[in-house]
Design a protein around this nucleic acid. Structure first.
Length: 624
RNA sequence: GCCAGUGUAGCUCAGCUGGUAGAGCAGCUCAUUCGUAAUGAGCAGGUCACCGGUUCGAAUCCGGUCUCUGGCUCCA
């Protein structure tokens, strides 16, 4: 099961023109239906203006940097979803302290209100120009522009830049900007190339929009699952155990268990068969599956048992499940066989790539492998897509986008023959279209064994993550020589579908924490009900209710501290306890409770049986 | 892995140019018995990430290592 995180900003460096940028940075879809895209034309026009401002601001940045460091070598400076960047090669190492200086110079450029002037050069003139002023990256970039296409420049003040535009009319139109962070970026995104220094910034139409965005960004940081995870005691990572290895704390474990129970009941209803497989597998298994050469760079070292035996911590579950399928002879009448496992796998991701729960080295997938006939493929894919959509819907994750991950025709890293690949890609695209799922085709993102339908969700800082995935695979059945007996009494090759609606519990949990900002719905809440007696005189009554709730299966507690009710409420609110039952003398005498819901305040009073039945409905219907 | 930044009590953070560590919250104890987001008092809590160097003296300066953060690259 392949599990990817695509690049944050998909900017093709060859695409200088905004026209091209358009094609790639289309606005994200809000939901699954085609019609939702309607209002986005207006958004596009707005975005177009914003992109022009940001693109122009990148030029202003380059102008300022060249004034301060004339020896700087320039690469490119496009707008992005959130702002812009410009890449420089320079002996001087930028530090955040330089920002003040650079921004001051940028302000001067803005104040000078320079015009952005369009011009064209012939290929020779352009090359000669960059040779003369010694800008090697720009020189190389000229070669990226296809023959016959216009080579265009924009000039503001003393700065002339290879660029297809468009820009705002004058630097004075760049009214509100801020430099944000420094990063290294490989030239042309290739790690064998030298690293350039990238300056990220953002720009808006006016100062209000800029400060709104900055404020929103600060707010978003408060939702960070790493912060909430620590505050709420959901999970921890101990360097003593190892980087990227999640330790689920009791409260986090409750949420995970609920998610798993939800999924398990869906699987049973949909005809899956749960299986269990070990955490390691012989290296021969992975050589046969073809995983080994691909996986080599990101595996934990192999475990050598003796001279002849070598094992791998399993990086994926598919080869194990294949062995279960292969252990028995199958008639076409039994197909599809759907083998499901919450399977834990280990991948030695590069240290710099690890991130909280969203990028880890040990993860548990809600994995399953479906073995079916060619005729069944489409129906099975539909059901797995349906399950994935239901999963996202159940959690209220409506802001996802769907990516059809296809092979890169120019790469040789894929296995299997072309006709199967084409058939598989065609099937996935057709299902996506038939089910009216807005999607984009992304070549080069397929697994080595087949194309995928990936469900992507953004985290609180705007980073894209793959959660659910559906993968169509003609290759592993071939490699393992899998068979079933058809109605013609002859052996046939089954088709495999790999799928995981959550993706992994770790990543899904990380996204979910941020989605709910730690305020889980009742069915997931680690602590569902806390009983708050107003004084110690109601402790016994509170205990009685506590016992009733326990007996009814709720996750509950009672606050017997000597604090005032205000403090007890505050402590429950801070702990994000979903529901509070407040009991004072009044409630004791009327055999009732006063209900308060986290974040919603006082809900009035009810009798205990009334309250219990309403909570039960909330849970069984998974109300958000 | 690469580039940059960061690391002081459980958490959030002070600690000026080197003189041997401080607050709030959380925790514990006692008092308080209170009606929808903080009752008061007291106590306890740190090998200043780690290792080494400079210095009479290092949280502070220098070097190295590690963690974490933001990017880049990678990702079955």
């Amino acid at each position: 099961m392949q599990y990817v995180r695509p690049k944050r900003f998909t900017i093709n460096p060859i695409c200088f023109s905004m026209r091209c940028l358009w094609d790639i940075s289309t606005p994200h879809m809000e939901g699954a239906k085609h019609e939702i895209n309607r209002k986005s034309i207006e958004e596009r026009q707005q975005m177009d203006e914003l992109s022009r401002i940001r693109h122009s601001c990148a030029h202003v940045l380059a102008t300022a940097v060249l004034r301060i460091w004339p020896e700087a070598k320039l690469d490119i400076g496009p707008p992005t979803d959130e702002g812009f960047y410009y890449d420089f090669d320079l002996e001087h190492r930028f530090t955040p302290d330089d920002f003040e200086k650079i921004e001051a110079e940028m302000k001067k450029v803005v104040k000078e209100n320079q015009t952005f002037d369009y011009s064209e050069k012939s290929r020779e003139e352009a090359k000669e120009y960059y040779q003369t002023i010694n800008q090697p990256f720009k020189l190389e970039r000229i070669d990226d522009i296809p023959e016959g296409e216009q080579i265009t420049f924009y000039q503001n003040g003393e700065f002339l830049d290879l660029c297809a535009g468009p820009h705002v009319p004058r630097t004075g139109n760049v009214k509100a900007f801020k430099l944000l962070r420094l990063a290294a970026a490989y030239y042309r995104g290739n790690e064998n190339n030298p690293q350039l220094q990238r300056i990220y910034g953002t720009a808006f139409k006016n100062k209000t929009q800029l400060s709104d965005w900055l404020e929103k960004h600060e707010e978003a940081k408060k939702r960070d699952h790493r912060k909430i995870g620590r505050e709420q005691g959901l999970f921890t990572i101990s360097p003593t155990v190892g980087q990227g290895l999640i330790l689920w704390m009791p409260k986090g474990a409750i949420v995970r268990t609920e998610l798993q129970n939800f999924m398990q009941s869906e699987l049973l209803q949909r005809g899956y068969n749960p299986v269990f497989t070990p955490h390691i597998g012989s290296i021969d298994l992975y050589k046969k599956s073809g995983h080994f050469p691909y996986y080599k760079d990101s595996q934990y070292p192999t475990i050598k048992a003796d001279e002849h035996e070598e094992y791998l911590l399993k990086p994926m579950n598919c080869p194990h499940h294949i062995q279960i399928f292969a252990a028995e002879r199958h008639s076409y009448r039994e197909l599809p066989v759907r083998l499901a496992e919450f399977g834990t796998v280990y991948r030695y991701e590069q240290s710099g790539e690890l991130s909280g729960m969203t990028r880890v080295r040990g993860l548990t997938q809600d994995d399953a492998h479906l073995f079916c006939t060619q005729e069944q493929v489409e129906c099975e894919i539909r059901d797995t897509v349906d399950l994935t959509l239901k999963t996202l819907r159940t959690l209220g994750l409506n802001n996802y986008r769907v990516q059809v991950s296809l092979r890169d025709p120019d790469s040789d890293k894929y296995t299997g023959d072309l006709s199967n690949w084409n058939a598989a890609e065609e099937t996935l695209s057709r299902v996506a279209k038939d089910m009216e799922i807005i999607h984009e085709n992304v070549p080069g993102e397929a697994a080595f064994y087949g194309p995928k339908l990936d469900f992507m969700v953004k985290d609180c800082l705007g980073r894209d993550w793959q959660l659910g995935t559906v993968q169509l695979d003609y290759n592993l059945p071939e490699r393992f020589d899998l068979q079933y007996i058809g109605s013609d009494n002859a052996p046939h090759r089954p088709v495999m579908i790999h799928r995981a609606p959550f993706g992994s519990f770790e990543r899904f949990m990380g996204i979910l924490i941020e989605h709910f900002a730690g305020n889980f719905p009742l069915w997931l809440a680690p602590e569902q009900v806390r009983i708050l007696p107003i004084t110690a005189n109601q402790n016994d009554y509170g205990h009685k209710i506590f016992d009733e709730l326990k007996a009814a299966g709720f996750r509950t507690s009672i606050d017997l501290s000597g604090e005032k009710i205000g403090a007890k409420i505050r402590s429950a609110e801070t702990a994000k306890v979903h529901t509070m039952f407040i009991v004072g003398q009044k409630e004791l005498e009327s055999e009732s409770i006063s209900i308060r819901i986290h974040g919603k305040g006082d809900q009035g009073s009810k009798t205990v049986p009334e309250a219990i039945s309403s909570l039960k409905t909330h849970i069984s219907e998974r109300i958000l």
